[in-house]
Design a binder for these strands. Structure first.
Lengths: 334, 334
DNA sequence: CTGTCCCGTCAAAGCGGTTTCCTGCGTGAC
DNA sequence: GTCACGCAGGAAACCGCTTTGACGGGACAG
């Protein structure tokens, strides 16, 4: 018998099929003895509830769709590892609720696949990989036109549900840490106008805290390059050429910071001896760098949990713009 | 109207519901003009096929379940980035076939969730994250007891479907590259008895090729430590203490190699000046190291495609033990 | 002894598609 | 003019589960 149905279980347990359903779902109105008999029959037959039949009837699939937006033509191994970490924490949060996670990577504006909710496959959709990603705006536009709802990591603004790292606090912590370490010639390296303002927030928090302590940071826009790492290398070279006495750098992201680190070494600077360096995101690769990268690490467990909760519209997370707490992890570089 | 059904489309197009189904699935026996009218009606109503109803009837969900096995209690950010890369390529392969991907991380042998196929949620299951992971064997045992079928990245042996990197060739390429670079005092750093023999294969390929060229490598088992990176650091120290004249190292994986790199630097060795270093896996972090890590990179696109094909039992992939080609990517470290 | 209530169970009606079976009608052969 | 044929499309069965509504029988009150 291929895949026993609830009718098979019913026959074996000597009850009706509806009783099987009630017994297995712990619905009320089933005698304890009957319930046990059904459970035994189900176990013996290796019965597993058909999720399609169940979801069809219940109109709920207990599944969340996770869409990760990539740059067009981007090799998947080039995706910022931060998003893989976020994926992992979202998976943990869904799994903790007994939900399934449907994962999809999308890189082309041409054929976005976003009907996961409309087709019933998922109860809600989460979108990540959007920060400073132009493709993301195409996706937002498509979604809005289609009346699609989702929860998003980033700052797309209304009418979407979204949240992000507490970038402002992160920037402040970076400034405080560098200054507490005796650094006074500070610089921020990062995009000066990011589509979703995530980097702007980091910069502004950094600048405000530094200024309050009498230091005015240099703001350096990284030159165009193939990826963040390459941008970081070039940005470090440029910056040190123009401001050789910089002694503390806050980079807008870890990938950028790892590039900056390499650029600093190439120009003969020692880290943290000559220049202290702080990144943002807490990616694993930062711990492997030499020296290990000091960084601002968002609480990913909280982020995953909050994204899932907001997606499922649990109370307390309906308001967009929630900030995920960030802590400074001091390692070798600063 | 919440979620139009095919009946709504039928009414609007002035045809029966069964014709709508036929028209939208491109089944034969529908007049071209009628087909167009149905398509228009569907578009106007924003109709999307309910995947549960469809899957229920078709007994196929066009979905693949991907289970990633983690070490118990392991933080998800500690998962070897290689598996995230593999996840990405599997996602690409499923997406290319119009399939969905259900992702699940499992860390405890106690409550494995593996009924994705039995419940109809997925048509097939792929398991990764098993290499040198003890938890994996619990999973295999459970699966076998439950008569569960799946395709696996690793070498669990019969009765499972599985494939892995062409480890032997990789080992040989590493030896050849080091020797071609003038290295003669070679060492292999890695587990000497790995549960699935993946590392053994790398070692044996390395040793055989080196021996054929008159070089007998030192074999170094890394000491126990919190993770592969830490193991690498310690292994490098140990090795150089006992064999100060080693000038070429092949590490069993990139994570290990990155640790070895750090260990080498700490003991004052320059890389590749004093010691050349090669890793295995082609992870992104290797490109960020200083110097960038020379590595053996499996063709991940091929791996993802082959895993999906084997899982769906496409012809030509039924035989377990398929080897995914590996190429040597020469970067700074060797 | 009869009427009422409640508990446990069952039959059956969906959920929204896909597909089989069948009918109606236009075409061409004889 | 009649008949066979084939195409387009409709009615209905069915996928496996959840849940409503109905029912039988035992307990209890009157």
């Amino acid at each position: 018998m291929l895949r026993p149905t609830s009718f098979d279980v019913a026959e074996r347990a000597g009850v009706s099929q509806s009783t099987v359903s009630r017994a297995l779902r712990n619905s009320p109105g089933v005698n304890a003895e009957t319930r046990a008999r059904v459970a035994a029959a189900a176990r013996e037959l290796g019965y597993v509830v058909d999720r399609h039949a169940s979801s069809l009837r219940l109109k709920s699939s207990e599944t969340i769709a996770l869409v990760t937006i990539c740059r067009p033509g981007e090799d998947r191994s080039a995706i910022n590892p931060f998003y893989f970490a976020l994926l992992g924490s979202i998976a943990a949060a869904t799994s903790a609720r007994g939900f399934n996670l449907l994962v999809s990577f999308q890189e082309s504006a041409a054929n976005f696949r976003a009907d996961f909710v409309a087709s019933g496959l998922a109860d809600a959709m989460i979108v990540i990989g959007t920060t400073s990603n132009r493709t993301a705006w195409d996706f937002f536009a498509e979604a809005q036109a289609a009346g699609l709802g989702f929860t998003c990591w980033g700052s797309p603004g209304d009418p979407f549900h979204w949240m992000r790292s507490d970038n402002g606090i992160g920037g402040r912590l970076a400034a405080e840490h560098l200054i507490a370490g005796g650094r006074r010639r500070l610089a921020f390296i990062g995009p000066q106008r990011s589509p979703q303002r995530q980097f702007d927030e980091r910069r502004d928090g950094f600048t405000a805290a530094a200024t309050a302590r009498g230091v005015t940071p240099i703001l350096a826009e990284p030159p165009a390059a193939s990826d963040r790492h390459a941008q970081g290398v070039a940005a470090a070279r440029d910056l040190l050429a123009r401001h050789p006495d910089v002694d503390g750098i806050f980079a807008a992201s870890d990938m950028l910071a790892l590039g900056v680190l390499q650029g600093l070494k190439e120009t003969g600077r020692s880290v943290p001896g000559d220049v202290a360096l702080i990144g943002f995101d807490g990616i694993r690769a930062g711990t492997l760098a030499d020296p290990a990268l000091t960084t601002l690490e968002p609480d990913l467990d909280a982020a995953g949990e909050a994204l899932v909760a907001m997606a499922l519209e649990d109370t307390g997370f309906r308001r967009s713009g929630t900030r995920i707490p960030v802590r400074l992890v001091a390692r070798g570089s600063a």
